[in-house]
Design a protein around this nucleic acid. Structure first.
Length: 265
DNA sequence: ATGACAGTTGAAAACTGA
């Protein structure tokens, strides 16, 4: 049994008390973090390791940044999404988790912080998002050839369908919901990756993000943009999935909350 | 239509995010 969780912390240093409390209570085996908003050397490495996790990160100053925590040892395989050597934004980290015997099939995971893309009429931002999605599709296709247990998880900044949006009209001009965004999302899914949450909860409102503004959290007006995507070999092992709302209830929370899967791995 | 919140930077208000 292996649990993999994804959590956009919106600043790791600010959210360390929340993260450590959540690691102790939820006790996930693998954690994919986004928006750590710090350089690698600024990571609170000792504090994380003292809780029993190996930690790797791709950080940058002030913005973005992803990290990967695992109880079992892991080996970093990629520190950037292939396909554009000029892209310097810290948005991707891929590793192999060496799950101990008797369940010793390796598990490949990636933590993903897909570009937001707003505003959609900006000359750079939305095209960058779409190009990044095209790169992700190409790489995800390559990964499938390995026939491994793969979990691609993170803040994808995509609302796959209208059911993943609290108010379609309020989000009509948002990059997260555009036709071009959703077309690429389906292309990714149609490669053979299973959206873990929708596999076990095909319908219904299951949000992972609530804007800090306009009373979105108390009104439960959110978005489902954090996803755990499973290769067929991982989907075979899917036992449970959930969104853990507890961290979002705390004082000074992230605007996201964790999503997790349990695999029979 | 705008800004509402929050974090970072760097020393105030600008930039970014979703």
């Amino acid at each position: 049994m292996l649990t993999v969780a994804s959590f956009n912390v919106n600043s790791l240093r600010v959210r360390m008390p929340h993260l450590t409390g959540w690691l102790k209570s939820a006790a996930p085996d693998v954690v994919l973090l986004q928006e750590i908003k710090c350089l690698d050397e600024e990571l609170p490495r000792m504090e994380i390791e003292s809780l029993g996790y190996q930690v790797s990160a791709v950080g940058m100053k002030a913005r973005h940044g992803v990290a990967l925590l695992s109880r079992a040892k892991h080996t970093v395989e990629l520190r950037a999404l292939p396909g554009d050597d000029t892209d310097e934004q810290a948005r991707y980290l891929e590793a192999v988790i060496h799950v101990p015997a008797p369940h010793d099939r390796p598990v490949r995971v990636a933590t993903i912080y897909l570009p937001n893309g707003n505003p959609i009429d900006d000359a750079e931002k939305f095209p960058y998002k779409l190009r990044w999605m095209d790169r992700l599709i190409r790489h995800a296709r390559e990964l499938l050839k390995r026939e491994e247990i793969v979990v691609l998880g993170g803040d994808f900044n995509v609302c796959p369908t209208d059911e993943d949006v609290f108010d379609v009209h309020a989000m009509a001009n948002d990059a997260l919901c555009q036709v071009e965004t959703r077309q690429r999302w389906r292309e990714f899914v149609n490669l053979g990756y299973v959206d873990a949450l929708r596999a076990l909860h095909p319908s219904g409102r299951h949000y992972t993000f609530w804007d800090y503004q306009a009373m979105r959290w108390p009104r439960n007006e959110g978005l489902r943009i954090d996803h755990l995507m499973l290769s067929p070999q991982a989907a075979d092992l899917l036992e449970a999935v959930g969104i853990d709302k507890e961290p979002r209830k705390l004082e000074r929370p992230s605007d996201h909350t964790p999503v997790w899967v349990r695999l029979a791995a």
